[in-house]
Structures are given as C-alpha cells and as structure tokens.
C-alpha cells in the first residue's frame, strides 16, 4: 500500500529531529492512508504522534523522507494553501481568544474568501453538528468550558469542508458520555462525507471502537499497523499485545463486578 497511487496520504522514510543532535522525534516513518480510511495513532507520551500529524500538513518540515498528500510532495505546495485544505484539531485546541466562536469556526472559509452569508450558514450548521446552541456563536472562547472549546475546535477544522482531517487527541477534555457520543457522531460524519481521518488518541478503547486501522508508535517508530480486529487477535510485540489486550481485560473485570465478584479477585 506504501506510496501506491490510490493513497491520499503517504509518508516514506520520514525522519525528523527538532534540533541538531537531539533524539529523533520520528524516525524512518512509512505510512500510507487510503481515501476514506479512519486511522487511529496510539502510543505513549513523546512517541512522536503529534510530530507525525504535523509532518502531514507541513507544520513541521521533515529532515529526510517524503510526505505526499494527494500524490504531491507537500514541500511543493505552499504551506498555507495545503493547510486550508486539511482540517486539523490541535491537542491544545488553540482557539483565538480575541475572536468570537463564529469567527473562530469561520476562519478558514474567510481566508479562502467565501461570501460572508455562506460562512454564517456554515457556522450555524457546524454548531448544530458539534451540539452547541446557536447563541454560542457570539461568545468569546474565555466563556466556554474545556469540552465546549474542543467542540469549537472540531467545528473549526471541519468548516472549509476538507477531505482530510488530522485530529490530535480531539476529545480529551470531554466527559466519557459526551466523548463517546461525539466520537460516534464524528465517525458517522466521516463515513457520510467520505473523509479521510488520522486521529491521535491515547485511549485504546476509542481507537478500537472508531478506527478502521490502528497504528501503534513507540520512540518515533511504528511498531504495529493493522485493523483493530487483527491487533486484538494477536501481536508478536509483547508491549503491543498487552496494550491491545487492555480493553478485553477491562471488560472482563467489569463483568466480574456486575456479577458480584470481589474487586480484588
């Protein structure tokens, strides 16, 4: 699948160190994503997940290797043009504190020169999608809870109808119920709109339940890359195997609790 013509995103031997002599953030990454795929990236803190996402939309320039989007190497496209066509949800959300919610959501369409009436319609539509009341449009980010901000961040990434979505722990600050609901809503949207999604998460259950494919990273390299089904069945790497066994182990423990067994049994 690597670099095959039908990949919408393709990384080949991508290496990046943030400073000369510093440990590589990612090393020899090779990954191809087909159109319409939903890929979850999972791995410990500092394993290079965020760096991988930023290499795709050019926020981080690679030291070696090639990143292609739609078949074109990203360094041949002007960065801002590339990024207007790719939705990105930041780990730190990064809403513009001086802009109202509506202007935050509508920023990319505005940069693309959409007519303001069209932007207003799109903003209203997205507020409904991320389940925020319409009057939030006039609020400033300071007046939102952490979860509400993440929803605005998601709406902002979707605003210009990108075909590719890069999401860096997009649902981290949400309560479990909302998180599950919004995750499932997003998955439906992904399918309905034919999006290609690469989502970083540290929640293995979320990855299993939402993604078509799970990529496991450790110390800047990919240690596993397969469908949830395959990974759940077995893996040679003991750490990956233990990670993938987690949801099942937890489910068993939950069932034990329900059936009245002792907690430490």
């Amino acid at each position: 699948m690597t670099g095959s013509p039908e990949s919408i995103i393709a990384l080949a031997g991508v290496t990046k160190a943030y400073a000369p002599g510093q440990r590589h953030a990612v090393r020899g990454l090779t990954l191809a994503v087909a159109p319409g795929e939903f890929v979850a990236i999972i791995g410990g803190s500092g394993s290079g997940k965020t760096t991988l996402l930023k290499c795709i939309n050019g926020l981080v320039g690679v030291d070696s290797g090639v990143v292609r989007v739609d078949g074109r190497p990203v360094d041949e496209v002007a960065g801002h043009v590339l990024r207007r066509s790719i939705g990105y949800v930041f780990q730190g959300v990064g809403l513009f504190p001086h802009l109202r919610v509506a202007d935050n959501i509508g920023v990319t369409p505005q940069l693309l020169g959409w007519p303001s009436a069209e932007i207003a319609t799109r903003v209203a539509e997205l507020l409904t999608l991320v389940d925020l009341p319409p009057e939030f449009a006039r609020r400033l980010p300071a007046g939102l809870s952490g979860g509400q901000r993440q929803r605005v961040g998601l709406a902002r990434a979707l605003a210009a109808r990108p075909r590719i979505m890069l999401m860096d722990e997009p649902f981290g600050a949400l309560d479990p119920v909302t998180r599950d609901a919004l995750g499932r809503d997003y998955r439906r949207l992904h399918t309905r709109m034919g999006l290609t999604t690469v989502m970083v998460t540290h929640d293995i259950l979320e990855a299993v339940l939402l993604a078509d494919r799970i990529v496991v990273m450790r110390d800047g390299v990919i240690v596993a890359d397969a469908t949830p089904r395959v990974l759940l069945a077995q893996h040679d790497d003991p750490e990956v195997a233990r990670l993938m066994d987690m949801p099942r182990q937890q489910a068993l423990r939950v069932r034990a609790i329900v059936e009245g067994a002792a907690l430490d049994g």
Binding site: H80, R83, V93, G94, L111
Partner: peptide
C-alpha cells in the same frame, strides 16, 4: 500554531 494550522 492554530493560526498556521488553519492556513494563515
């Protein structure tokens, strides 16, 4: 980072 990310 977000300013860059949205394509400014």
């Amino acid at each position: 980072e977000a300013a860059d990310g949205v394509g400014m």
